[in-house]
């Protein structure tokens, strides 16, 4: 990640390999797309209906859905809506045989990653799928890191949390001691504990971590943190 200090790299769980889910009622279209993605080294699963796809357990995974708009039974837009409830960050790329503006607008408003017309160009579609997968991976990583930072901040005591807020506000230990009451030395000890508990590599790293977790302040009274 750009701007991400190496010292704070997390031992985040290694993400599984991404899967491309192809949902198209046209059997031969499914086969053609499988050829395309498999030969690009992507694990691919093909479903003939939206219902069959949604019945798959565990959709909240790294990957991408290539979704046909017009299908008998559940149409693409409805599949997207249902999927959003279960796996909000699984990107959806729509494929359509008849590009209709209102469908495209609805799809993009509902958060579609892309909207591609049939006939499509193999390389172009592949690039879009890979881009969607990369975007999702970055989002998932950021979310994961945020959760990890929040977990660490949650281990601070209420007092340490207070001191952290003053540090983030750019105050020196002396200023903090004056503001909170207590000796400069005590504040220095809190500071050390904070650096230790958060495993921050530097003051800059600590501030970045705190800002990434965002409001509300992680530890004021109960020391708990929102994740």
């Amino acid at each position: 990640m750009p701007g991400h200090a190496p010292g704070s790299e997390m031992d985040a769980a290694v993400e599984a390999a991404p899967i491309v889910f192809v949902v198209d009622d046209e059997e031969h279209m499914g086969t053609a797309l499988r050829r395309l993605f498999v030969s690009a080294g992507l694990a691919t699963e093909v479903y003939a209906t939206g219902e069959a796809f949604l019945a798959r357990p565990g959709l909240d995974v790294p990957g991408c859905v290539v979704l046909d708009v017009g299908m008998p039974g559940m149409g693409g837009l409805e599949v997207q809506a249902r999927l959003h409830e279960r796996a909000p960050d699984l990107p959806v790329i729509f494929l359509t045989g008849a590009a209709e503006v209102h469908v495209a607008v609805t799809a993009m408003r509902a958060g579609a990653a892309d909207f591609v017309e049939k006939p499509f160009d193999n390389e172009d579609l592949l690039r879009r799928v890979q881009a969607a997968i990369a975007r999702q991976a970055a989002l998932r990583e950021a979310a994961l890191r945020r959760r990890e930072f929040a977990r660490r901040l949650a281990t601070l005591t209420p007092r340490e949390g207070e001191v952290l807020e003053w540090i983030v506000a750019g105050k020196t230990s002396k200023e903090i001691a004056r503001a909170l009451g207590g000796s400069h030395r005590t504040i220095e000890i809190h500071r050390g504990r904070i650096m230790e508990k958060t495993a921050a590599a530097s003051l800059a790293d600590l501030i970045r971590m705190r800002l990434l977790v965002g409001a509300p302040a992680p530890a004021r009274r109960d020391g708990g943190a929102d994740t």
Partner: peptide, 24 residues
């Protein structure tokens, strides 16, 4: 027309994709 376009674009879509794959 829209329906027919859909009906034609589907087969054209996969034939086109298959041709690229075949080239590879």
């Amino acid at each position: 027309a829209a329906g027919v376009a859909h009906e034609i674009n589907n087969p054209i879509g996969y034939v086109n994709s298959n041709l690229s794959t075949l080239q590879r």
